[in-house]
């Protein structure tokens, strides 16, 4: 059927009319959208486990790790140390969960030759949980081979030298441990633990947020959006404020 332009315009007009007028003439009611608004359990955040350590149960490992963390963020006039702020508990919960299992990592063999050159990143088949286990074991072994005391009992200056050596590639822990990457993983973990929402075990009393002036899990900043260059001193807010 051929339709001339006038007919086409007329039918378009009729269509528009039916769309705009119909709602007032008893068009179908919208139905079937959910009446409940209670948050689905799937979307409720999962605060970290509160029943004690699950992964970092090796005292010698944990003692070394705590000492490393507290060299990264020592207690000073700006705030508490990493362990005081709960970074061990934070990392333990992460290691116990999907991150510790490497749930989002590609870990299937074969590891491609030259993959690290291609991606400019070290690639691991081991999970973060395994890497912490082997890394701390190797660090303790290196210290017992080279020092007269455990890592945690060394002078802070000596601890810093060892950590700097690991970071710069001057110290190789051996035993198949990628020393530089292990150092970087510990540094990343301590940052995450110090600044993540307190419901995940670290950043206790929001110490990390108070230190840098981060206002936390607020919804809306329109009140402050125009106040640039001003010290706002907003009270930081956790996703689940403490009782």
């Amino acid at each position: 059927m051929k339709m001339n332009r006038r007919e086409a315009l007329r039918s378009l007009g009729a269509l528009t009319a039916s769309v705009t007028v119909a709602p007032y003439l008893g068009a179908n009611e919208v139905k079937g959208f959910p009446q409940g608004t209670v948050l689905d359990e799937e979307f409720v955040p999962t605060p970290s486990h509160t029943g004690g350590l699950q992964v970092l149960n090796n005292d010698a490992h944990r003692r070394t790790l705590a000492a490393v963390f507290d060299r990264f963020i020592p207690a000073d006039e700006l705030g508490p140390s990493a362990t005081q702020a709960g970074c061990i508990e934070f990392l333990d919960a992460q290691l116990a969960g999907p991150w510790g299992e490497g749930a989002t990592m590609y870990r299937d063999t074969p590891l491609q030759p030259h993959a690290e050159e291609l991606t400019q990143l070290p690639q691991f088949i081991a999970t973060p949980r395994e890497r912490y286990e082997t890394g701390l074991e190797a660090l303790n072994k290196w210290v017992s081979d080279n020092e007269d005391a455990e890592f945690a009992d060394l002078a802070p200056e000596r601890q810093d030298e060892i950590l700097t050596g690991m970071e710069q590639g001057d110290i190789d822990l051996g035993q198949g441990v990628h020393t530089k990457a292990f150092f970087e993983m510990m540094l990343l973990s301590v940052r995450e633990g110090y600044f993540s929402d307190p419901i995940y075990g670290g950043n206790r009393d929001m110490a990390g947020w108070k230190m840098i002036g981060f206002p936390g899990a607020r919804y809306d900043y329109r009140l402050y959006a125009d106040r640039t260059g001003e010290k706002l001193d907003l009270i930081p807010v956790s996703l689940i404020p403490q009782d």
Partner: peptide
């Protein structure tokens, strides 16, 4: 039958 407020590690710490 509304759920309780989520328990967080902070409750325990304190």
């Amino acid at each position: 039958a509304a759920r309780d407020k989520l328990a967080t590690p902070q409750d325990e710490a304190h």
